[in-house]
């Protein structure tokens, strides 16, 4: 599907009127001879939850990592809030401050308490005084329901709690967009729900989110827009109702069929 098709879908794109936060144009990424992204185009509007779904290795996570410059592009363009993604270290740093990222493996800093983890960004990057940074961190922990775990080190938290701390850590930078890279894939089934409900609450507040996920019911229920990846391309994108109930392409039907999605 091309950029033109995406624009044609604007009719059933509820939040298409919002400012474009992220615009991907023909994004290409290669690792040696392997093409991870073979020309991906996608728009993300303010307040939207855009879910990236598709089989493993289809390029979803790579697109997310390109978004905040953890990977460099080999072709195409990414615009963030109307500005082309910086190629230099300093410019990238400024942009990353406005993009929160949540990793599959949490990547909390194990030598710090939950509170220190969340305060780290404001303290080190925004140069906020420690007391003020910790006040903000405490508020963020409360927001994800972990006010009572502030003094715990990550090793003393469950997977679901660690991921909620990681979300709080990203939120403490007050980002304009949150990038979630398979946030529940490393979790025990019983803790997936608590993370998804924090994400749902964020979405309800109007946070712009790009979510790489295998949780189809989350994409269906919370997503405003769903992009289906296969072999480094978006094979189909549209509102969740259409993707899940009336998929247009064979690849989407195959993928959802494999997951046992009834449709």
């Amino acid at each position: 599907m091309t950029a033109g098709d995406a624009a044609a879908d604007a009719g059933d794109r509820r939040k298409a009127g919002g400012a474009t936060i992220l615009r991907y144009r023909d994004v290409v990424k290669r690792y040696g001879t392997f093409t991870a992204l073979a020309g991906v185009s996608l728009d993300v509007h303010a307040g939207e939850v855009v879910c990236l779904i598709g089989p493993s290795g289809s390029g979803k996570s790579t697109l997310l990592r390109c978004t905040n410059g953890l990977e460099t592009l080999d072709g195409g363009d990414i615009e963030f809030e109307g500005t082309r993604l910086a190629r230099d270290e300093r410019g990238l740093r400024t942009m990353r401050q406005r993009m929160g990222m949540v990793f599959q493996n949490f990547e909390l800093f194990p030598h710090q308490t939950a509170l220190q983890n969340v305060a780290e960004g404001p303290r080190t990057v925004l140069r906020m005084p420690t007391a003020q940074a910790e006040r903000r961190a405490a508020a963020m922990l409360a927001k994800v329901g972990l006010a009572d775990k502030a003094a715990n080190h990550p090793a003393a938290l469950s997977g679901g709690q660690q991921q909620r701390v990681a979300i709080a850590r990203a939120l403490a930078m007050e980002p304009d967009v949150m990038l979630f890279d398979e946030p529940t894939s490393a979790l025990d089934p019983e803790t997936i729900g608590e993370v998804l409900s924090v994400m749902k609450a964020l979405a309800d507040e109007g946070m712009t989110m790009v979510v790489v996920t295998h949780e189809m019911s989350f994409a269906r229920r919370v997503g405003d827009w769903v992009a289906v990846f296969d072999a480094g391309r978006i094979v189909e994108q549209g509102p969740p109702v259409r993707i899940f109930d009336a998929p247009q392409t064979v690849r989407t039907r195959d993928f959802l069929g494999h997951l046992g999605w009834a449709g």
Binding site: L70, R93, R96, F109, G121, T124
Partner: peptide, 16 residues
């Protein structure tokens, strides 16, 4: 590597 990436994703420089 994910640890340094998480730090840089917050906007830290490589040396930070």
């Amino acid at each position: 590597r994910g640890q340094a990436e998480a730090a840089m994703a917050l906007g830290m420089s490589r040396s930070q």
